[in-house]
């Protein structure tokens, strides 16, 4: 299918600023879904609040635009209640790791089959450029006029420590790599985290004199390097990109299935006559 078949065209042009990397992430994600040949009815995209979160309104999947930081908690309810669905959860850096930090580490700990995409532009864009837990020290923001003193999280290390079974990083400059990593993350059974370095030319770029979108993409190209590359070996200060973890680990919904089987078996032994049929009747309106 064409990429336009995966979006709700009536809401375009999208609302992000010119040159915002979030649009590129949307672009890459749609291509990943297309190349995997996924059924649109099988995908639920859950997002939180912020610039990043608006992504869910534009996709022609089931979409759940929720509360700041809570996307993964909502997604956990969707996934566990209907495990056959694919859950894509794009989040901003503040959304995922400040207000949503607890949900993030616990979703990773459970290894529930959800793909978390951290759209990391290192700033709160929608509220006007305040520093985030991924800004890092020495950065300017509208709440850090004298520069930040907060250290940033390393999303990759945090995700690994919390128990995610697939962890990767890419950038909006490296779009082909991005599509490839997203495909692997979506196919992965378990909690997958993809951090995508994105650019906010309007706030982060302007305040930190990093130039326009083009210059910020050039910066991503210069300051990152592929895992195992010569460039990274020669200069360890570069930010590594690629897949850091990809392991098989027990997935939460599958483990719960086993619990259900055990519970049903034990009860059947105790009360053999009890009927375990599905009680829910579906009703239809006549509208």
């Amino acid at each position: 299918m064409a990429i336009k078949d995966y979006i709700r065209q009536r809401y375009f042009p999208q609302m992000w600023c010119p040159g915002c990397g979030h649009g590129t992430i949307l672009n890459a994600l749609l291509r990943a879904v297309d190349e995997l040949g996924l059924d649109k009815n099988s995908i639920v995209m859950t997002s939180g609040i912020g610039c990043s979160a608006r992504i869910s309104g534009y996709v022609d999947f089931h979409s759940l635009h929720t509360l700041h930081g809570r996307a993964l908690a909502f997604a956990t309810g969707v996934k566990l209640s209907k495990p056959e669905l694919k859950l894509l959860v794009p989040m901003g850096d503040g959304d995922a790791l400040a207000i949503g930090g607890n949900h993030f580490i616990h979703a990773a700990r459970r290894n529930i089959d959800i793909t978390a995409i951290i759209m990391n532009n290192r700033i709160y864009g929608m509220t006007g450029g305040q520093y985030s837990p991924l800004s890092g020290p020495g950065k300017k923001a509208s709440t850090a006029p004298y520069t930040t003193i907060d250290n940033q999280f390393d999303v990759v290390n945090l995700s690994i420590a919390a128990g995610a079974s697939f962890v990767a990083r890419s950038t909006t400059y490296h779009v082909l790599e991005c599509v490839d990593i997203l495909k692997r993350a979506i196919q992965h059974k378990g909690f997958s985290v993809v951090e995508i370095l994105s650019q906010c030319p309007t706030h982060y770029g302007r305040k930190n004199k990093e130039g326009d979108a083009v210059q910020m993409l050039e910066f991503q190209k210069k300051t990152t390097a592929k895992l195992g590359s010569k460039a990274l070996e020669n200069d360890p200060t570069l930010i590594p990109r690629g897949v850091f973890v990809d392991i098989d680990a027990p997935e939460y919904c599958e483990e719960y299935d086993k619990i259900m089987k055990r519970a049903m078996k034990e009860t059947l032994q105790k009360e053999p006559l009890k009927n375990f049929g599905n009680q829910a009747n579906q009703t239809c309106d006549m509208a």
């Binding site: 859950t46 929720t66 809570r70 908690a73 909502f74 956990t76 309810g77 969707v78 949900h103």
Partner: peptide, 17 residues
């Protein structure tokens, strides 16, 4: 869930399915 907030969010997600 990890807290009360998440519990409330999770049931909303499950209701939608």
């Amino acid at each position: 869930m990890e807290d009360e907030i998440a519990s409330m969010c999770a049931i909303i997600g499950a209701s939608l399915t």
